[in-house]
């Protein structure tokens, strides 16, 4: 009982600290401050783009995952879930080594097209996608596995080809799983720090998203850091409340 209370306190105290120290009268001015607005805009752009990319790439990946069995499935699953357990900094280093100017892909990209990915907004999006996409893939794959295959079989027996079955039956039935997967993915992308700072750097206006801005502001303008943290906290709470039926069981 005491241990449970201690555990709960560990969650509650930092939140209480954040809220108690919040400079409520400055929230308005902080929000419109240039640096804050820039970081916020960049964060929204990067995290939403990362979620969109994750949807486009992640749904097909989940489809493939749900239809493979045996060893291959294990390997694919391990690969897709690796970024979830990998320390984000390591992910950032790995991305740097792959897409960096002398990297595996980065070197030919730079030589052939003069493209340079690291330390750009693109890099921030890639870093966030890398870290956040597994959340979407896992959610969608779970949805696919619990989908009654007879819906798709009925559709086929009614003369629907694979594309029609996917578009009119599979995808709509997966909507709840896709939605909650996308929200989780977006939340993870919004909070991404380690991989982004390693691979994309910390350039205001280009790669400095809210988490990076919080980290920097904590030393120079603590009040700004707190306000930015509050924004992220509000987003997290909104997600929790929005998805409570799905996560916390019956209301």
């Amino acid at each position: 009982m005491a241990l449970a209370a201690a555990g709960l306190l560990l969650f509650l105290l930092p939140l209480a600290g954040l809220i108690a120290r919040a400079p409520w009268n400055q929230v308005g001015t902080e929000l419109v401050a240039t640096e804050t607005a820039t970081a916020l805009g960049l964060s929204l752009f990067c995290s939403l783009t990362a979620t969109a990319v994750a949807l486009v790439l992640g749904i097909p990946l989940a489809l493939v995952l749900s239809r493979t069995t045996g060893t291959l499935r294990g390997v694919l699953r391990a690969l897709t879930t690796l970024p979830m357990v990998l320390p984000p900094v390591v992910g950032g280093v790995a991305l740097l080594l792959a897409f960096g100017r002398s990297g595996l892909i980065g070197s030919p990209l730079h030589q052939l097209f003069g493209l340079q990915i690291p330390f750009t907004t693109t890099a921030a999006v890639i870093a966030e996608t890398f870290v956040a996409m597994p959340f979407l893939v896992i959610a969608v794959e779970g949805g696919l596995r619990s989908l009654d295959s007879r819906y798709e079989e009925s559709a086929r027996a009614l003369g629907a080809n694979s594309w029609k079955v996917f578009a009119r039956v599979t995808l709509p039935l997966l909507r709840p799983a896709i939605f909650s997967g996308a929200v989780l993915c977006w939340a993870r992308a919004l909070g991404e720090f380690g991989a982004t700072i390693t691979f994309a750097g910390n350039l205001p206006g280009r790669t400095q998203t809210i988490p990076l801005a919080v980290y920097v502001a904590l030393e120079t303008r603590p009040d700004g850091a707190i306000v930015l943290s509050l924004i992220l906290l509000a987003v997290s709470l909104a997600i929790l409340i929005g998805l409570r039926d799905r996560w916390l069981g019956a209301p």
Binding site: E153, R156, A157, L158, G159, V169, L173
Partner: peptide
């Protein structure tokens, strides 16, 4: 393939979309 057979199947618990 199933979709080209013109074979209809009705399952036990309707499976309506």
């Amino acid at each position: 393939p199933t979709e080209e057979r013109r074979v209809g199947i009705v399952f036990q618990d309707h499976v309506l979309f």
